[in-house]
Nucleic acid binder design. Sequence first.
DNA 1: ATAAACTATAAACATTTGTTAACGATATTT
DNA 2: AAATATCGTTAACAAATGTTTATAGTTTAT
Lengths: 188, 188
Amino acid sequence: MQQLIEVIRQMICVSDAEVQHFTQMLTLKNVKKNEVLSLPDTISNEIFFIKKGIVRVKIIDKEGTEHTIHFAMENQFIADYSSFIQKVPSFYTLQTLEDTELLVLPRAAVEWGFQNMLEGQKLGRLIAEYYYIYQDQRIKNTYALTPKQRYDSISQVFPNIHNRAPQHMIASYLGITPVHLSRLKKQD
Amino acid sequence: MQQLIEVIRQMICVSDAEVQHFTQMLTLKNVKKNEVLSLPDTISNEIFFIKKGIVRVKIIDKEGTEHTIHFAMENQFIADYSSFIQKVPSFYTLQTLEDTELLVLPRAAVEWGFQNMLEGQKLGRLIAEYYYIYQDQRIKNTYALTPKQRYDSISQVFPNIHNRAPQHMIASYLGITPVHLSRLKKQD
DNA sequence: ATAAACTATAAACATTTGTTAACGATATTT
DNA sequence: AAATATCGTTAACAAATGTTTATAGTTTAT
């Protein structure tokens, strides 16, 4: 729990009483490598906090092709946050790439936090803003950078990703085929 | 002002006193067609609310090529929100596509709202969440849909956009050349 | 320890997408 | 009203990217 509290305290002030009440609502979850954490077509009613390990988010299109949309690792939250917020069915699959330790934040805990912690709404705002900024950067990069440039800078976004995810998933994240990424690496 | 208050009241409860204080801090701005509202390389210290008109957001890459990243119209907020939040230089240019009437929300007004309106933090959270969801949808679509499919559904995201923006800007938004979009339209 | 699955690379070929230039139509400015 | 820019389409060609198949190294499961 320490780990999560530390992350929260970097964003807002929380009293010990608040921490106490909040953490009681959370549960631990251990998941083996390559296991599925969350499936599409159901409403996401929990947010995961990654204590240790790495999770990828993928989507399967109409042709049945998988696309890796996101990676998340230690000290980050992961969920289909759109599904969580809107209470609509998710489009994503969450899958571990290593044995992973998680804290599970059920909807009740998150909503309790927003409504009853003194700076709960502010925490919600800061988290949403944080992910907004990440997505904005990402959208910006898809317009202004080539796939090769994005490949060369990907470890700034996902530290050590080259040792934790196979290259074909990185290619998928970049929106290109693994064969093509292999080609791009050979050039310059 | 009515218009803005209505939009805010769809998201949170605000007292008349709050409205009174808040709206005093705003100013009106009228901008002719094709004028620049905001330039890159400076920190965005204001958020615009569009009363009437349409604004496009563009970025210029290292090769000097322009990319249309976003459109915003009536009853929406527009800014380089990343620059505003982080207080770092903007990458974007904001430009009108029609004669446009705006309300200007200076940083002081926004921060006053967050800190002094009863549900100010909640408003900030809801706005950030709203744009997060929009971006998530967009990122999802770039992976799972073809440019043609995205073209065919673009007016769901930007109503009436075909009558308000030239086609080459729509092509740019889709990440393809105007020539190629023209070709795609001819097929099926 | 062996077999099976997964991974990255490579080459040959197919398809998609970009580039350039030309044209007519429409809108804008003088 | 005339002149000038902007816009969308088309064609021919070039460049980028995808597809398929093969191969060898690596990891994983039996």
